[in-house]
Amino acid sequence: MKQKFVLTALFVALFVLSFVFSCKKNADPDPVIANDTPAALTPDTILTPLYFPPPIIPDDNKPSKELVQLGRQLYYDPILSNNGRSCASCHVQSLGFTVPGLYNNDMPVLPHVNLAWYNNFMWDGSKQGTLEDIMMFEVKDFFATDLAKVNQSMTYKLLFKKYYGVNTITYKELAYALAQFIRTLVSANTKYDLSLKGLYKRSPDEQRGLEIFFTEKGDCFHCHVNPVTTDNLLHNTGLDSIFSKESDKGYYLISGLPSDLGKFRTPNLRNVALRNRFMHDGRFSSLEEVIDFYDHGMHKVNNLDPVMSLPAKNNGLQLNAIEKKQLIAFLKTFTDSTFISSPKYANPY
């Protein structure tokens, strides 16, 4: 009888204890949400300008409306950094998702535009792969995002749980969500795009500028390929003959090969007329200066890109003042007023 009483008491005690523990669990301010199945996502599409190749989209991060919005929230949220800055601090929509001047007094900020068609990133091409790869670098190394801080945000905690099915947010989910939004930053409504569709007639100056751009007269098109305006490759365009600064050495710093000295990524020309610093170190502050350089300022170095051999050999392009203005008039047709004002890219906060 006594033994039976002891067993019953033990059972009751265990029962009570289990309640106590379960109550403790419920009181946890960081609850583990039981349902691990991510919410159904609404498929989205990436706007593709006329004659562009298909965008690069990894199979494991197909665009969805919900994740694009999540990425947009993160893009404008200083929670990712430890200094109060967000992606948007250096990538301002009204300026074509870049900023004037130099980052760290060192280099112009490359614009976030049409990155869905990039497979290498940074001026020196040091990061290759998909947008997801570069965003992984941004959160892990550039921002050194404090994951504990992000995981303390109930908003993000719930959103990442809902859409990615994770209880703990990692760099991967942050990178993937950012990539979702940045992949949607597509410029497709410039005068140049409209002219391809027959919806805009160029002025005579713009037309003549196009002919300079797309012929050997200016020979811009071999690197700024049509219609993406970047060939995704690295070139030495004769900026320097002496590489006094480490940052002037370009892809050489990555590969260690002398043939890569001074090689930099071809920048995208979308909204180029909105910028005020050009080249990897921002040495030029106007399009006029850039054109003057390609006209007669190139250094004939050993690893000068072969396609630059024409202007280098024949004493430059020999454009006259009117032709330079016409070329700039054409470059201005790459300005996309829709892109820089679209509410869907704007700060959601």
Binding site: L210, F214, F221, V225, D231, N232, L233
Partner: peptide, 9 residues
């Protein structure tokens, strides 16, 4: 992507 021959040529 870089193989287009410009219309102007």
């Amino acid at each position: 992507i870089g193989m287009g021959w410009p219309d102007a040529m």
